[in-house]
Write a protein that binds this DNA or RNA. Structure first.
Lengths: 335, 335
DNA sequence: GTGAAAGCGCTAACAA
DNA sequence: TTGTTAGCGCTTTCAC
């Protein structure tokens, strides 16, 4: 591997001149510049980013921590991050935390050692422990698809409570009254609780229903859990004409159960999902769902990081991006 | 940010001693070791990986290049890579190439600057251009979910031709004779052509059919393309009792079209997919498919990289992992 | 415009 | 066991 020194020798100039042709080409005479450029090409020289970073205190690298890249939702966000980073000349170190605090902390620690310029954090709850770790890192942090109400950390996500409310409102406008929900875990204060709350508020404000216990079941965000939750829900409340699901996977699970029961979607029961991951387009019937702008959220997260790095002011600490209901085939109008 | 020098000063030892307590703790007296450890904790010191890497010529970082992380197949492989890396203390820089040669080359170049210890390459065709870039990088490369028959580069994938053959054989054993295929692009010599060839060989050897033109349609690997290909296929060959699809997405697209036509799967037509991504479990009916061990392929790729780095010999240059047919609900037995 | 020299934070001989 | 010293490959004053 050729070094700057060898390039200097080969072109008969000093290493500072070589450095200059790379960083400030117009401050070196055309003649020497050409000699250096030729030598660079001939030797196949590439600058060593380690040595550079050691001096410049910049690595043009950010760390992205998330529970699980195989989650399509996360993957889509990461794609947005990566694309935005690419445009900025910033690379991404991917860290799966597997939802383990210990693994998260360990990753954070080595990211710090590697002198990343920033962190994008996508794991749900921001514990005291994580916050401490953030503090010691001395680099900008942005939360994507999550947020902290207790700490002041920049974040970008959607307004889950409102999105959930809007889903119910959408159903109500289609003439539905007996609306049920398969909620995520309410212990999940980012995507679980708010969506549940939005549902309850909508029931209260739009439908005049106070007690929702008989029309809600809980699931993890996954398919199988959705399947089982739908089974319980149908058993205790067979009169439902529509079920709002806290994720697309839950929705597909619910549709699967209904299919097994010989109940038609949307003719007998309408289903609304949440996320608008690609599977929403592939189900039978195609799923009507609350769309999160996952890719754009990733992009926005990287943009916030850029601003932080360049010390531009942020318009707001917590960014809420627009959600929208994508109408497909899983909801029947009762009007 | 505290440096090793400050830790040394704070604990009244030389910087080499501090360095030693981090790299060879037993070569320093217990007393000084404790003093140093205390200073490290108090100052919140973390070693600078840039400085370390500059000397050690190791960054414990590998680059992973793939067309698109939002592809569930790729995401699953990446997860395997990341998990295996984590166990080895190796981090992953994610690079989306967007299937652009220029973007691939640019990524390769900065990965080289960043002094990564290795590259995992998942983009399909290994062109001369890429191979040249690999050569100049001076680090181990491994191909995952792809391979090169013209260059000798270590790779891990499945035997796509045989997997395809096996899918047809499976169908034949279920009593199917009128078997069709929705193939991927045959211009894709990694996942497209071999699967098509496997199908043709199976038709010839098992079914005694030479001319397959009337029973094959082509698609990209995606849902919508599968939908349309199924439409064309059904039009020209309505007698088919089974269709083998070159990807799960194609299969779901095909099922979607059949549903729109009022044709029942598997009662009227059986469908077999390829990959066994998560959506195969979520469709109605659940998809019978040729499973690739995506996660394990990622792990294996990282393992090959580790061996290369430590100069352990490789058992074989091209590793073919086992595929298996996962039986679910989309195939009907005709026997 | 150009080069010499200092130094980024660390490891690894080499002495002591 | 410990400290001194010489770099790793680069950028950046500071003179000339």
């Amino acid at each position: 591997m050729a070094t700057i020194r060898e390039v200097a020798r080969a072109s008969g100039v000093s290493i500072s001149t070589v450095s200059r042709v790379m960083n400030a080409p117009d401050r070196v005479s055309p003649e020497k510049r050409m000699r250096v450029e030729r030598a660079i090409k001939e030797l196949g020289y590439t600058p060593n980013a380690l040595a550079r970073g050691l001096i410049s205190k910049q690595t043009d690298t950010v760390g992205v921590l998330m529970p699980d890249i195989s989650n399509p939702y996360a993957a889509e966000v990461v794609k947005g991050i990566e694309d935005a980073g690419h445009a900025l000349g910033i690379h991404v170190i991917l860290c799966n935390t597997d939802s383990s605090a210990e693994r998260t902390l360990r990753n954070l620690s080595v990211l710090r050692q590697k002198q990343v310029d920033g962190i994008i954090f996508m794991s749900k709850a921001i514990t005291e422990e994580f916050y401490q770790a953030f503090q010691t890192m001395n680099v900008p942090i942005v939360l994507v698809a999550t947020e902290s109400l207790v700490y002041d950390i920049p974040s970008v996500k959607i307004d889950d409570e409102q999105a959930s409310y809007d889903a119910v409102q959408y159903l109500a406008r289609k003439g539905h009254v007996n609306i049920g929900m398969i909620s995520g875990p309410i212990g999940d204060t980012i995507a679980g609780l708010p969506r549940y709350k939005g549902f309850r508020r909508a029931c209260r404000e739009i439908l005049g229903i106070e007690d929702t216990a008989s029309r809600v079941e809980f699931a993890t965000f996954h398919f199988h859990s959705g399947y089982e939750a739908m089974s319980r829900l149908y058993e205790k409340q067979p009169r439902l004409t529509a079920v709002f699901c806290a994720s697309d996977e839950i929705a597909l699970g619910a549709m699967s159960l209904l299919h097994d029961l010989g109940i038609a979607v949307p003719d007998d029961i309408s289903i609304v999902g949440f996320d608008n991951t690609k599977i929403a387009r592939m189900s039978i019937p195609k799923l009507t769902t609350v769309a999160q702008p996952m890719y754009e959220m990733g992009k926005a997260g990287m943009e916030v990081l850029r601003r932080l790095r360049e010390e531009e002011p942020l318009d707001q600490l917590r960014i809420y991006m627009k959600h929208v209901i994508v109408e497909r085939e899983s909801v029947k109008s009762l009007m």
